[in-house]
Design a protein around this nucleic acid. Structure first.
Length: 275
DNA sequence: TAACAGCCGTTACGAGCACG
DNA sequence: CGTGCTCGTAACGGCTGTTA
């Protein structure tokens, strides 16, 4: 699938009773590699009907499972995900479509309440589960950070040196955040140096993004805020909870009461036990 | 109009320095 | 050497503007 052309992808859609999507896929020039790199947000943008979104996600998921299942038992690539210290250099910089396709795990089993309804909170958390999956796929951070493979439209915009509008900036930041997460061993707290490495890589590759010479700080700020946004709804991560206990005071509010702190500590212990 | 990103102010903490 | 102060940085929640 990774080598398919746009036409081949369209034929495959027809074969899977998704012929209605052919026009959109042609319009957006979705090749096989692009198809495997789609995340749920992109699929939502690309495909209007929820039913089609679900079917498409499922098909891609199944394809990935079929093509990754046997490898995960003993392939070198997967081994590096477990023992980072031994990560091979080629894995650090690999940006092939099959690899990039894993960077935004879009499929997450729906957690339901007893009455069968999906908890809205879970729905919200599902939008931020990328780090949870990513924690199992940590790679080794290198100083020479390699930018991720951006979607086709963003690549075109960067190639043409067009100043990105608001939504494009957000998508670039989102891609960088997801890519960085893969290197953070499950943490959602990159170091300042890591932020610097990523933003430097971005601005070196695309100097026109350094608007007014203060682009570095703006992009770094945006990236930090993106991580903050990802952390915000998370309640099942010890590190996140610890920092929330530490800094999570409302404006004008003094430190939490001892009782509150105790409750938070109990929550952290519960998280530890459940992991 | 809800969801989201970005900015701002606040708090905690550690490093560095001066002083007794 | 211990203490107290200042400063810089990290992380938070709140608020507001923007977008789909």
């Amino acid at each position: 699938m990774e080598t398919w052309s746009v036409d081949q992808v369209c034929s495959w859609l027809v074969e899977k009773n998704l012929g209605e999507l052919v026009h959109r896929f042609q319009e957006e020039e979705i090749s096989g590699a692009a198809l495997l790199a789609l995340n749920d947000r992109m699929i939502q943008q690309l495909v209007k009907k929820i039913g089609h979104q679900a079917v498409l996600m499922d098909l891609i998921k199944k394809y990935k499972q079929e093509n990754q299942g046997p490898k995960s038992l003993g392939s070198p690539r997967e081994t590096t995900l477990v023992t980072q210290a031994e990560a091979a250099p080629e894995d650090e910089q690999s940006s092939g479509p099959d690899n990039r396709g894993q960077q935004t795990p879009s499929f997450y089993p729906a957690k339901t309440l007893d009455n069968g309804l999906i908890d809205q909170r879970v729905l919200k958390q599902r939008r931020n589960v990328k780090h949870v999956v990513a924690r199992n796929k940590a790679l080794q951070w290198t100083k020479s950070y390699v930018l991720p493979e951006f979607p086709y439209d963003i690549k075109c915009m960067l190639a043409e040196e067009k100043c990105p509008d608001h939504s494009v900036r957000i998508r670039i930041i989102e891609f960088l955040q997801v890519d960085m997460t893969k290197y953070l061993e499950g943490s959602l707290y990159p170091t300042s140096q890591q932020y610097n490495d990523v933003v430097n890589a971005l601005l070196q590759a695309h100097p026109f993004l350094d608007e007014d010479g203060c682009g570095f700080f703006l992009w770094k700020r945006a990236l930090k805020d993106r991580f903050k946004y990802v952390r915000r709804p998370i309640e099942d991560d010890e590190q996140v909870m610890r920092n929330k206990c530490k800094f999570g005071h409302r404006r004008g509010q003094t430190r939490k009461s001892l009782a509150d702190i105790r409750l938070d500590e109990i929550k952290i212990v519960q998280i530890k036990l459940s992991v």
